[in-house]
Write a protein that binds this DNA or RNA. Structure first.
Lengths: 153, 153
DNA sequence: TGACTCATGTCAGTAGTCTGACATACGGTG
DNA sequence: CACCGTATGTCAGACTACTGACATGAGTCA
């Protein structure tokens, strides 16, 4: 079965393992959010707004790792549901600062608790030092990927 | 814009950082695969087949972290393009063992080299020990998420 | 002032993935 | 043998997120 050919060794490839971990986390979050009638992006948007009130559509999109077009569709839906609110006119520029409503805050509370349990379960076998180490490693990876690769066609 | 906001809980949440890292890697891979006319799942499928020839549709789906329905659509497309080949009838059960064609192998070579560069760039600032540590941490997380939470619903 | 650049919000069309459903094949157990 | 549970391949419809496009507002610079 295992032929060390060219390409990437799947069992040791950090790229593959990163995707595997993210996929597992995604599934676990979906499993707890779906019964609440929420998608992951839906939850992410609410969580972002709770921690950073007044974020614009584009800023929310970047924070939730989707395009601003996708976030815009979601925001319109959340607005109709009365979970968030945006001013009719932009106070400055074109950006519309978004805020959670009380209803949105209540919905987020339930979801946030569920997601926190998922994350705690993921980290159940890691002590504090290991978690710090993992933060450091992930941050280094993110920086390296995001920064200019210097030389590539 | 309202920049300058100090990072809050989000910046220390390992779940969020995991998603951020995976998203950055995803974008970087997309950026190099798109010019080759390939999607990430397309590449993943070919890479899996190179290392584990004879994988079935369902096995490929699990390996690429998509549903078997999605992989089936992709496989039919790859088959039409002459990149993979499947027997008309299953030798045993219903599973159809899939194999790369020479054309598929050639296309994979180019893509694999590009993806390897992306992964190496991601790990540019990590030494061997740190990479091993990261493998260990990710594997622990995957196991914890996947295993039964053994708690209340 | 006017031209240029950049970021934003939004509309429309497209593509990839998902859920639901059904038929088929194997392995157990009565 | 018949029955049941599990796994697979596949078709169809629905959904989510994406790319492309356009207009608006703010900042820069000559």
């Amino acid at each position: 079965m295992s032929q060390g050919e060219p390409g990437i060794e799947l069992d040791t490839s950090l790229g593959y393992m990163l995707k595997a971990a993210a996929s597992a986390l995604h599934s676990a979050m979906e499993a707890v959010l779906s019964p609440l009638g929420m998608t992951i992006t839906h939850y992410s948007c609410l969580e972002l707004l709770a921690q950073r009130p007044g974020l614009s559509n584009s800023e929310l999109a970047r924070g939730a790792f989707v395009t601003r077009q996708s976030m815009n569709v979601l925001l319109q839906s959340l607005e109709r549901q009365g979970l968030v609110i945006r001013p009719a006119r932009a106070p400055v520029g074109r950006a519309l600062p978004t805020e959670l409503t009380d209803l949105g805050r209540r919905q987020l509370e339930v979801a946030s608790a569920a997601v926190r349990r998922v994350e705690q379960n993921m980290l159940a076998d890691l002590d504090t030092d290991e978690q710090d180490q993992m933060r450091r490693l992930l941050r280094t990876c993110i920086t390296s990927i995001t920064e200019p690769p210097a030389s590539t066609t």
